[in-house]
Computed example of a mutant assay.
Amino acid sequence: MDATSATVGVEEEFILVDPGTGSPVAKNLEVARTAKAIGVELQLELTRCQIETNTGVHTGTADLLKELSKLRRDVAACAEQNSARILAVAIPPTMAERFPVTDTPRYQRIENRFGMLAYEQGLCGCHVHIGIPDRETAVQVSNYLRPWLPVYLALTANSAVYRGVETGYASWRSILWRRWPSAGPPPYFASHNDYDAMVDMMMSSGNILDTKMVYWDVRPSETFPTVEVRVSDIPATVTETALLATLVRATVMMAQDAREHGRPAPRVPAEVLRAAYWNAARFGLDGDGLDPVARRVAPARMLVADLLGYLRPALEELGEQAFVDDTLAAVLHRGNGAHRQLAALHRRAEITDVVDELAGATLEECL
């Protein structure tokens, strides 16, 4: 395992909302302009109610956490200057019937092609990029990561309330996101040529308009020399994002080690992986999950413990075992974003309590 080459970078997506009502507001262009004036480059998302931050490349969790915290503080300040508030939430707890699509040529093409999928797209995730030597390695590593994707989802689930009501799911974003023809758990690919052939078929059939629309939850990045893991809801807190990034980084290292030693990736059938996804989206950390390799039902927290045990050699190599142990224990004790949303909603059945809880979590520990 090579900790120095397995660099890490993170993209976080946020919803912009009205400070009083918590309803999404179409102000990403204004917030991005304000941020640019202070030297912060933000990315526009499909809808005008979303904004994205991108970190630099890091080799340690402490530095990554420091940058993630600064970015959240900066974006919050820029939003405030434009009479908006940012929420680290995967789907807005309260929303209009339709999101305005950002006015760029590419996003307008997507709107024209995919209709209501674009109008209802206000979904926010967290994308973790891990440095990888070449495209073939990225595809092969993706095969090893597939069985662990439901665990990442359960850990970070943060979309339990939608349009003012409890959805019955810890990650409603995951359910909605998979309506796109190129989203959700990726197929098992024998090689990068196999991957490219599938992408070519999807483009020729019109299922995607370009390679950036390959939305599978793990994929070779189209922009960076990385493998990109996209399964997660945007975590409620910056520390949970750093935890996710560290776990993904360690999983990639274990995958590379297995590949180098001739241990094949498990060929989990798509139907089994989808079943494990459903459990993770439905219950998050608070119910049963499904181990897609052993095909056994077990408490989600036990599956998280299985992941932690599997990753111990890589975490020790990275020097991040103590951070992961302490942070994970805190998350399991307090609950993830979905748990916090439901606790806030159940206090008074007031959606404003959910918005306030999420706003506080967004900047929690961003000192």
Rank of each mutant, 00 (worst) to 15 (best):
I86V: 12
L64N: 03
V25P: 07
N143C: 07
R109C: 15
V331I: 14
D74T: 08
D210N: 07
V165G: 06
T211N: 05
P313V: 11
W180L: 13
H261M: 09
G289V: 05
A236C: 05
P150W: 03
P105L: 01
V248C: 04
A322R: 12
T55P: 00
A300T: 14
M198K: 06
V218T: 13
S191C: 01
G337V: 04
M201Q: 02
R146G: 00
N143G: 04
P235T: 05
G60S: 11
A190Y: 09
N336A: 12
R73E: 07
A245G: 13
G115K: 10
I51T: 08
D306Y: 08
V199C: 02
P185H: 15
A197C: 05
M213W: 09
A359T: 11
K36I: 08
T246K: 03
N193R: 15
E41Q: 05
G262S: 11
H192N: 12
G360W: 11
T104N: 15
V10P: 00
P292W: 08
G115P: 00
Y152F: 15
P299R: 15
L16I: 02
R85E: 09
M203Y: 01
E222D: 07
R146N: 01
V354H: 09
P313W: 02
L243N: 05
C126G: 09
R146Y: 01
E260Y: 01
A359R: 10
H339S: 14
Y107Q: 01
A118C: 10
R259Y: 08
F224N: 07
A276M: 05
C366P: 03
L247T: 08
Y277C: 08
T55E: 00
S174M: 08
S159W: 01
G39F: 10
T239C: 06
